[in-house]
């Protein structure tokens, strides 16, 4: 017994050490982004890779925050992330639940319909034309409707639903619960880990997407965050010889780029830690006896 527990303790130690190493390796680029965002441009060019800046400056953040409808952009993206993710989850969960019932007639062809869309895609121009035809152009709904359900996420949620023991639902039905009640009161609470995960996937997708913003939105008040940030970066990047360049363009726009990255990723990064509490172990404990 004691050798086993000593061996186990050793493995534990190795595990901790390995994880710590992995964590640090993953932290490195982010830390790089963080420190460069506070470093003056001249120092960045001079030194190359900067992990601890010699001088701290808020210049880069000023440049990014100063302009160009960033406040609006945050609002638009926040709206689209909250409302969009909410709708995503509703549609996805409903459809996944129905498709998880193996006894459902026509299930196989319905699933094939979904899977087929994961593999075959009409392309940019047809989707643009459709969005235009539906009158969604230049509205925030053009950012929400086209990506309403991700087939990938749907399949995953369906997979989780399939794994729930049938007895739980059946015993609830025996107690007189209707379908909706079973779904709402029993199935969903048990599926919180996967719902939280898929919700996170959708939320990150909304937060990070910029291509749909560029294609479907012309109204500057409606530009989502990533589009505005991208424009801010492009502003510092264009150095046409023909143009008027009276202002001092920084020697390196790297700091500004990094500041933009920080401003765009820190909010969404903070979401997951809040979701982690949903990953409590043993949610099935005690629900079914025997």
């Amino acid at each position: 017994m004691s050798t086993t527990s000593k061996r186990e303790k050793l493995l534990q130690g190795v595990n901790y050490a390995a994880l710590l190493l992995a964590g640090l390796i993953c932290l490195f680029p982010f830390f790089y982004v963080l420190s460069v965002s506070f470093t003056p441009a001249a120092e960045v060019v001079r030194r190359g890779v900067v992990l601890i800046p010699e001088q701290i400056t808020l210049y880069a953040y000023n440049q990014v925050l100063q302009g160009y409808g960033l406040g609006n952009a945050y609002q638009v993206t926040l709206f689209r992330t909250l409302v969009g993710t909410g709708l995503n989850l509703v549609f996805t969960i409903l459809m996944a639940y129905a498709l998880s019932k193996k006894s459902l007639p026509g299930r196989a062809p319905l699933l094939m319909i979904v899977i087929f869309t994961m593999l075959f895609n009409g392309g940019l121009i047809p989707t643009y034309l459709l969005t235009r035809y539906l009158g969604l152009l230049d509205t925030v709904w053009a950012l929400i409707v086209p990506g309403l359900i991700s087939a990938f996420n749907l399949i995953i949620v369906k997979g989780f639903f399939e794994q729930l023991p049938q007895e739980i639902e059946e015993s609830a039905k025996v107690d007189g619960a209707g379908d909706m009640r079973v779904l709402w009161r029993i199935v969903l609470p048990l599926s919180m880990p996967v719902i939280a995960t898929i919700g996170l996937f959708y939320a990150v997708f909304h937060w990070n997407s910029y291509f749909d913003g560029i294609m479907y939105i012309r109204d500057q008040q409606l530009y989502p965050l990533q589009v505005v940030l991208r424009n801010i970066l492009l502003n510092f990047q264009t150095q046409t010889a023909d143009a008027v360049s009276d202002t001092t363009l920084p020697a390196s726009f790297l700091s500004i780029q990094m500041a933009a990255v920080m401003l765009s990723t820190v909010p969404i990064l903070l979401v997951y830690p809040f979701l982690q509490r949903h990953f409590a172990k043993g949610v099935l404990l005690g629900s079914v006896k025997g």
Binding site: G122, G123, P126, P146
Partner: peptide, 9 residues
Amino acid sequence: YKYVPMLGL
């Protein structure tokens, strides 16, 4: 949103 645009294929 998926099958109608597929006509464009």
